[in-house]
Design a protein around this nucleic acid. Sequence first.
DNA 1: CGCGCGATTGAGTAATTTCAAATCTAGTGG
DNA 2: CCACTAGATTTGAAATTACTCAATCGCGCG
Lengths: 188, 188
Amino acid sequence: MTDIFRQHIEQIVTLTDSEYEQVRSHFIPKKIRKFHTLIREGDLVFDEYFVMKGCLKAYKTDEEGKDHILQFALEEWWISDFKALAMQTPATINVVALENCEMLCLAMESRERLCRDLHKMEYFFRKKTLFGYIALQQRVLSLLSSTAKERYELLLQQYPQLFQRVPKTLIASYLGVSRETLSRLNKS
Amino acid sequence: MTDIFRQHIEQIVTLTDSEYEQVRSHFIPKKIRKFHTLIREGDLVFDEYFVMKGCLKAYKTDEEGKDHILQFALEEWWISDFKALAMQTPATINVVALENCEMLCLAMESRERLCRDLHKMEYFFRKKTLFGYIALQQRVLSLLSSTAKERYELLLQQYPQLFQRVPKTLIASYLGVSRETLSRLNKS
DNA sequence: CGCGCGATTGAGTAATTTCAAATCTAGTGG
DNA sequence: CCACTAGATTTGAAATTACTCAATCGCGCG
């Protein structure tokens, strides 16, 4: 089998087989069924997850009960409540499976130990985090300076698979508009 | 003198004097005057900057000529066009001094070399980037789920100094509302 | 004193939201 | 194969919100 996890890491650093075994040994497979919750608001969070198969959403529910999507995670994405994980505070978002999912679970201590023991992995996580930071800067800029239609088209272009797999309502709440407005965008 | 740069790093990793000298030797002091441009859209970007004194804005101008603030940088903040720096593509934002500024300038190769030579510094940059990522996630969530008034009050609470130092117009374009709307928020 | 910049206010306009209803679609069981 | 149902999407109309543009205000500085 082609190991998408190893490939994912080796896009950034090359590993010997024994290094890879060392890395892999810290990840624990985990499955979760469609609609089930991986992280619930208020929970303490100890792990982050690499998605092998399936699709999840991380979202926050506001006072009025409306949901706002912080991120989706398809195959080869990482997901968690990174703030809760880093600060060891209760989760402020929910993470829920949109399909049956298979993940690799990495405990925070495992990540830190990997980074300590394998300089390459500290490099890997630094780069990965930097790319995430850059992507979020782009998202902030697009929230500030683009119309909903432009944001929609950009997302469609960047992640066309997403539109086959998640309901439009969720796309709307990722883009920051109501589902009715999103629907009307397609027409014009 | 109290070295705010060393303190800044030692909030995350402790360094021996000689390690600190090694780190410090890669940073080149740079001054820039109020209203002058550090990075101009279209430039190639080779450096990132640690602000010792002063205040800058990173912003994008849209097709209609309106500015949108991606970030401010006060003392002890880092600023650059991180996307342009990481990808070695032309800058898509401008970085301009709002006051006379003193910075420490770090070339990308110097950062990578520091990370290679000093595992502690790779750890430092990984953590720093993670905190930046988390802060941006919070900003995305507040853009999606909070009213302009709530975002204003959060910013005021987190960075009260900012309001003494930058015009309200810029605060408005950071929050994603017109300056008139921001002005009316204070009243209600 | 008067100039200029930033902030505020008012009025009209444009865009988005809300709420309700209608339509479409995929999956289920007869 | 077809009818039925639940969920998702679309459409319509009214209400709300934010925007634009223009005018005014307030303050610091020469």
